[in-house]
């Protein structure tokens, strides 16, 4: 059986997707731990799931709606109160490079 589920390069790719960055030592440790965890997940391959519908909700409910009514928004000061940086009624972020 394949004992290597995930490579350091894949860990780096996934970290980038998740907007995380790891140092050398951390990457090594995460790679090894993720590998163990993913190996454990292989258990699931023992289960025959042919024709089984995936369950993504604990309770089957349908059609939960709100009506098209406008409710009060937050005062802009309240919206921005927790912002690390705000200016001119906006959240401020480092320039997006495009």
């Amino acid at each position: 059986m394949n004992r290597i589920k995930i490579s350091k390069e894949e860990v780096a790719y996934v970290a980038h997707l998740a907007r995380l960055s790891f140092g050398e030592e951390e990457t090594r440790k995460f790679t090894s731990q993720l590998n163990d965890i993913l190996l454990y997940m292989d258990k699931l391959n023992e289960v025959d799931t042919t024709g089984v519908e995936p369950v993504t909700h604990a309770i089957a409910r349908e059609n939960a709606f709100r009506e098209d009514d406008v409710a009060a928004s937050l005062p802009v000061e309240a919206s921005l109160a927790n912002a690390p940086e705000a200016r001119a009624g906006c959240f401020q972020v480092p320039r997006v490079i495009e």
């Binding site: 919206s79 200016r87 001119a88 009624g89 906006c90 959240f91 401020q92 972020v93 480092p94 320039r95 997006v96």
Partner: peptide, 9 residues
Amino acid sequence: RNPVSHVDL
């Protein structure tokens, strides 16, 4: 002027 962007939601 500055290397920042503003976000309006």
